[in-house]
Design a binder for these strands. Structure first.
Lengths: 155, 155
DNA sequence: AATACAATAAAACAAAGATACAATGGAGGT
DNA sequence: ACCTCCATTGTATCTTTGTTTTATTGTATT
């Protein structure tokens, strides 16, 4: 089950380029152990049509991972996971991914008009689900979301 | 026939800036239903040569509409009409989206082998860069409005 | 007139797509 | 076996598209 295609989700409105989104998510799957050495990735054209983008964009992501020695691309043959990273680099990748995801989460929340406290609050709400919901479990107050409909109007 | 180009009339003697005229008229066409969600607008260069102005002026109009969430501009792909949900449900959507992102963040962190506190710690590390690591001075400053989620992908 | 600011233009840039190309390997024919 | 053909795969180059940065122009304001 390396139907990788189904595991990749693209956000077309994000500021993060598509090819970086692809590379990051593949990297993450390797870090999680869902992709192991020798596993074949979908061809650039396959994945591209799955994601409905140009295959050059996928090729770009693959080249990035190739240069990082995470995969091996072979013209006329396909692309494969190159090596199971040793525990050290795997741990490095894991932490890198976590930091990346955290940064992403804050950024996207901010773009939705939420403050950092609100972003944290949403996480706490999930971790301490209280039936009566006495508002923020921690001290996060001040629900002054940045009013996304403020400068909204041209003219 | 949504050849928008033919529907835009510029008044070069008006005191109203060209980019406001453009934005306003596109806004009107959306309000009248002549442009619907997913419709592709002409490229900045197309519309610019059509109107015989610099493409930056069109880009400026487009950016305005993009910040107003009326359209979605995607580099390398084009710009499309983005139907803004009415303000009532917008807030609901925003909060739902935040919760969704928070859940995904925790889930992905967990799949990477991190505990919930580690996931929270990664966020805190970003919010208050520790003196030992001043390398990340706040990753999410005033980023242009750009909405994640909801793939707008006309095709 | 001098200064300041807004609107427009120009040019360099970056992401994504289109097209043509080269390497690989398998199918069929000899 | 060997060869040819060709479909498949990734690569290279160029085009298209929006973005950023800087310069020019026009118009108030002092």
């Amino acid at each position: 089950m390396n139907n990788l295609s189904g595991h990749i989700r693209l956000d077309f409105r994000s500021t993060e380029p598509l090819y970086l989104q692809i590379a990051g998510q593949i990297e993450q799957m390797v870090a999680r152990g869902e992709l192991k050495m020798g596993d074949q990735l979908p061809t650039v054209r396959e994945l591209a049509t799955e994601l409905r983008i140009n295959f050059n964009t996928v090729a770009r992501a693959y080249r990035l991972l190739d240069e990082a020695r995470l995969i091996s691309t072979q013209r006329g043959r396909g692309t494969y996971i190159w090596e199971e990273p040793d525990a050290d680099t795997l741990d490095q990748i894991r932490h890198h991914r976590l930091e990346e995801m955290a940064r992403r989460y804050l950024e996207e929340s901010h773009r939705l008009g939420f403050s950092a406290s609100e972003a944290l609050g949403a996480l706490h709400a999930l971790l301490r689900p209280s039936p009566s919901d006495p508002s923020r479990p921690f001290g996060f107050e001040a629900d002054q979301h940045n009013e996304p409909g403020e400068d909204l109007r041209p003219l």
